[in-house]
Design a protein around this nucleic acid. Structure first.
Lengths: 158, 158
DNA sequence: TAGATAAATATTGTGCACAATTTAATTTTG
DNA sequence: CAAAATTAAATTGTGCACAATATTTATCTA
């Protein structure tokens, strides 16, 4: 009753919405990455795909399109054109699997592997001079991850 | 040294990135809103614009396009077509300001005002059955907002 | 007051996201 | 083994985001 956030006029107040805080913070974070990633010739989603491939390389080598999709929670409508752009840049190779012609395997090229060295500098570059506290960021990350689990469990209208 | 997150191979690990947690949580949150907002005939960014207008209505009445842009941190490249769609739905009216012909005033229509009543149910609908704790959400919101302040202050490469 | 500068919005072009459908290949079943 | 069902990726279409540029109107300044 005394909670101002549940007063009738506050329920829809923009600044009370967690969803808007999430939306705004995500775009601000992406904007912070943009100029740094531009020096690698990558957009932010392309960078995420490269993270998946660099991580996979140490074990599986090539991975399926659907594997990238599972990791990033993206479908082929997003990934297919994105992967074609990365291939156009010579960072990856896309190849139909001979054993199962439905599958497309995505593998790093030498150039794509080399880019990892430059990418290693990215997280540090962003932290330096950004006034962000690593520990606080890590705890925010953990909080967001547990939110994600809850959102996944939420009934999606079905 | 003993921090696993700063081990060479962990710096680029996808699941260690706060930016990815933010990116994934934002999309999951939007996905949760999508079916609910669809019943109002709105996309998520359109809903945010309506929140701005409903909030402004109680005071200023009509607002400039640039005001909406400041509140949501969006430029006219995003807003102009979005506002045209809302106008096409009959929820808002766009009108050149007679005093300053550079300005476009955005005002709610009767239909747009009526939609607010339905929208009031949205936050509740999303919380119910989503397993989300309001208090925890509020503290996440506050943490995201202070992150946003820091990101705004960060040198943007200029 | 004419010309320069600034301000507000619109336009153009690229790259995501995502729903819905399509295509092609594999697996399952009768 | 053939028809049906399933799976993997691609395609199509809509709607953001955002950089860069253009257009129009207002203001400033010499």
């Amino acid at each position: 009753m005394s909670d101002p956030a549940s007063a009738p006029e506050q329920v829809l107040a923009l600044d009370n919405q967690t969803c808007f805080a999430l939306y705004a913070a995500n775009r601000a974070m992406t904007a912070l990455y943009r100029p740094v990633l531009a020096t690698l010739g990558l957009t932010y989603p392309q960078y995420l795909v490269m993270l998946v491939l660099w991580e996979a390389e140490s074990r599986e080598g090539a991975v399926r399109v659907s594997f990238v999709g599972q990791r990033l929670r993206l479908d082929t409508g997003t990934l297919t054109p994105l992967l074609k752009r990365l291939e156009g840049q010579g960072l990856i190779q896309r190849q139909r699997d001979a054993d199962d012609e439905r599958v497309v395997q995505v593998a790093l090229t030498g150039k794509g592997r080399l880019l990892k060295a430059q990418a290693r500098e990215v997280p540090g570059q962003l932290l330096c001079g950004s006034g962000l506290d690593p520990q606080r960021l890590a705890s925010l990350r953990d909080e967001l991850r547990s939110l994600l689990v809850l959102l996944d469990e939420a009934p999606s209208g079905g």
